[in-house]
Design a protein around this nucleic acid. Structure first.
Lengths: 189, 189, 189, 189
DNA sequence: GATGAATGAGAATTCATTCAT
DNA sequence: GATGAATGAATTCTCATTCAT
């Protein structure tokens, strides 16, 4: 094999795409994405067959990153609420640290360029998160047997919380705290 | 600029734009919008100077419609929770009845083609909704003095609820009920 | 109706396309064709939806022109051979006068961008030519009842004759004469 | 430039190119040709400096193959007409057996990517065919001293005959016979 | 010598906007 | 005011060719 496909370049494209999709929406030009990734226009297409393929893979890459981030350092021995709080905090901190990725994700979530299949795959990436959530909410949540529902509540309130943090970055910890409390109450029995 | 002659055509353009933005995102072609409105391509531009102007006005028109809808038939004499529930129900029912408008609104909310000014104007359209909310939450809400926050929680949970309704239309009433309960608990003291 | 589609511009595009397809083959860029027609790049596509549509219409336009040319001034009262000779001469003279169109036609005939339907329509344009040919060859031709065959022989020998004329334009009349004689003998009983 | 190592690969490229040029015209991508030949994209260019070089060599290779084929098994002792008929039959049979090569040849013949020099070289490859033709037509042909002309008539009628055979493969022998007769009469005194 | 990733100049279209009718 | 043809910049994607491995 000649020069192998560089994982580094693939990452650079996804990184650049996240940045530009966050800013310009899914209409972000592939030429700009390639340029931002430090590559020639055409090179992008050796890594992603079409722009839609790129968008879908970007969506999945971000979802995978977020899902993995939420589980990192999971305090298996802590109390149920603390374990939930851990996942919440990691979501918020990740998004605060990667605002472009979070913004791109929100654009992609409402875009029709993300296929039903990608959306389903995206859901599956959060399976473990939702399983842990379900486990921790046993005895607390009103809808114990609907992990999707509780996960969606968490997601909705996290996105909302991040909007407030974006507007008042100084109050990050306060909003983070308030958001989690809202979540914890929202799903309670 | 004097108001153009036919208010009817203006409405038709906004209606068509909502439909197409919902489906195709903000990239929806003006030519298709005009056609869907039953007009010639060029005519659109006698009603809206640019596409961005149309998009911004569409955003405001939908927000205004939603805000007005939430207040319609407001049961001034009912109990506080019932009054909140009224606004919640009207939101959900409006979105279930106008899925395209709701979808368009969600696209527009995350789009950078909506100016900061439009976003601020959009906020202001919900001033009365938020004032009533504040009034009804006095004594119940944890953050009594942050009507924006409570309004945002309502919005986030409503959008989430509508996602579930979209997936399982049959369970509309159950989700509507559950969503409101989640909201009511979320913001509680 | 605003400005109507200009038949003149449509012709200009077809004319320019003939010229460029003759020279560059079906790979001739639409941008160059538009420019040669004195129009903006985009304008071409208001007259022809796609490049393939243009190519197919060009093919049919040239075939129609040739078919019509072969019939012009048809000497209905002359002898059978003279009537055939008339059509032959008009073919050769038209191609000698419109070498680009003839060359374009030859490119298009072997191209897979011309649809089966266009090819069938092209055949039909020569129906009258072939009918007259059949009529004049009655009693002379070996395959009286195969007008397609006799027409194809005429076409093949005409194209070949035009190759010689292209190489030695001075001997045009001699080749024209020789070519017809070859045809007349070829199809004879 | 020394002959590259693998004659086998060179042949494979030419074979693949014939197939793809027949199907896609001269616009056939070199990458697809290489792939069809079982080689990497870049390898093609160690055998042919440029795509035009490949196209020109392909043209000459096919012409050479056809010329050689027409002479194979030449019945030196048969009568003049039978000797001509032999060459005709071998042409038709070769094309019927190698339809892609024949189709590619027709595409290349009308393409401007084939240089004047290649066209001249192509002519020369048929020198012996034409010499034998001239010899056999002595006393029969109207244009005894124009072997190019008689050869061109043969070529034109053969291509036409092959069009009919392509459309009605069952009648191959009948068309082959009829075509030769047409040729024999066409060039007769 | 073989490989295939990298390149960037096109290629065909699309589209917001203008303006002659 | 309404129409839709005209414009040309911008967009996605292709492809011959080069060159690091």
């Amino acid at each position: 094999m000649a020069r192998p496909l560089s994982e580094e370049k693939r990452e650079a494209i996804l990184e650049a795409a996240a940045e530009l999709v966050a800013t310009l929406g899914t209409g972000a030009p592939t030429a700009k994405i390639a340029q931002a990734a430090g590559l020639a226009e055409g090179t992008l297409f050796t890594y992603f067959a079409t722009k839609d393929a790129l968008l879908n893979e970007l969506f999945l890459a971000i979802e995978a990153e977020l899902a993995a981030t939420m589980l990192e350092g999971y305090p298996a021995k802590a109390a149920a609420q603390a374990r939930c709080r851990h996942m919440w905090d990691r979501f918020i901190d990740w998004a605060a640290l990667n605002p472009m990725k979070h913004k791109a994700m929100r654009q992609l979530k409402v875009s029709d360029r993300i296929s039903a299949e990608s959306k389903k795959l995206g859901e599956m990436l959060f399976q473990e998160v939702k399983a842990l959530l379900a486990q921790n909410l046993a005895g607390h949540a009103a809808k114990e047997n609907m992990p999707d529902y509780n996960g969606a509540v968490l997601g909705a309130l996290a996105d909302m919380t991040l909007d407030f943090i974006a507007r008042h970055p100084r109050k990050r910890e306060a909003y983070k705290q308030a958001g989690f409390e809202a979540f914890w109450k929202a799903i309670a029995r």
